[in-house]
Amino acid sequence: MPIFDTNRGNVLQALRRQDKAEDDARALELRLRAEVGSARQRYQSATSEVAALRADILPGAESAFDAATKGFELGKFGYLDALDAQRTLLQARVQYLRSLADAHRAVTDLDRLLGGASSIPRSPDSIQ
């Protein structure tokens, strides 16, 4: 008899689907929070490395290369010393560019995760 049919089966099924959707939403929120935290950590790490390379390592490597080149021209240093200084300078520049790229990738990830709402600087000169 339709009078006593309260549609409990469909109501129970709808409640289960609602619970599953809420659980999925909570899991997604936790995953996104973890990814945002990871991207922020990568950004901070990369920008710290960029700042250290820009402030200390690159100027030191350039100075050593200039001194080795001048010394080689004056006969005070050997060819291998000048090459070693050049290799060190190039490695420092490569590391600087890698760190800068890592910072930009982290910003891009944050923009993707936050829907373009991150307030992190995007230009290389603003990364300190």
Rank of each mutant, 00 (worst) to 15 (best):
I3M: 12
I3E: 14
F4N: 11
T6N: 12
T6D: 11
N7F: 10
N7P: 02
N7D: 15
G9Q: 08
N10D: 10
V11C: 03
V11F: 10
L12Q: 09
L12R: 11
L12G: 05
Q13E: 09
Q13G: 05
Q13M: 09
A14G: 04
R16F: 08
R16P: 00
R17I: 04
R17C: 03
Q18I: 05
D19K: 05
K20G: 06
E22F: 10
D23K: 13
D24A: 15
L28M: 12
E29Y: 08
R31A: 13
R31L: 13
R33S: 07
E35S: 11
E35D: 09
E35C: 02
E35K: 14
V36W: 03
V36K: 04
S38M: 10
R40V: 06
R40Y: 07
Q41G: 06
R42A: 14
T47H: 02
T47L: 02
S48I: 02
E49W: 05
V50G: 00
A52I: 06
A52D: 12
A52V: 07
A52F: 15
A52G: 14
A55R: 15
A55G: 05
A55P: 00
A55Y: 05
I57R: 13
G60A: 13
A61G: 03
E62D: 13
E62F: 03
A64T: 12
A64M: 10
F65H: 14
F65D: 04
T69H: 10
K70A: 12
K70W: 02
K70N: 05
G71N: 01
E73S: 07
E73M: 05
G75E: 00
G75K: 00
F77I: 01
F77R: 04
G78S: 10
L80N: 07
L80A: 09
L80S: 11
D81I: 03
D81W: 00
Q86P: 05
Q86I: 04
T88M: 08
L89K: 10
L90E: 12
L90K: 15
Q91G: 13
R93Y: 06
R93K: 15
R93Q: 15
Y96K: 08
L97H: 12
R98V: 09
R98Q: 13
S99D: 08
L100A: 04
L100Y: 02
D102A: 15
D102H: 07
H104V: 04
H104L: 12
A106T: 02
V107H: 01
V107N: 00
V107P: 00
V107D: 00
T108Y: 07
T108C: 01
D109E: 10
L113Y: 09
L114C: 06
L114D: 03
G115S: 07
A117H: 11
S118K: 04
S118I: 05
I120T: 09
P121W: 06
S123C: 05
P124K: 09
I127Y: 14
Q128N: 13
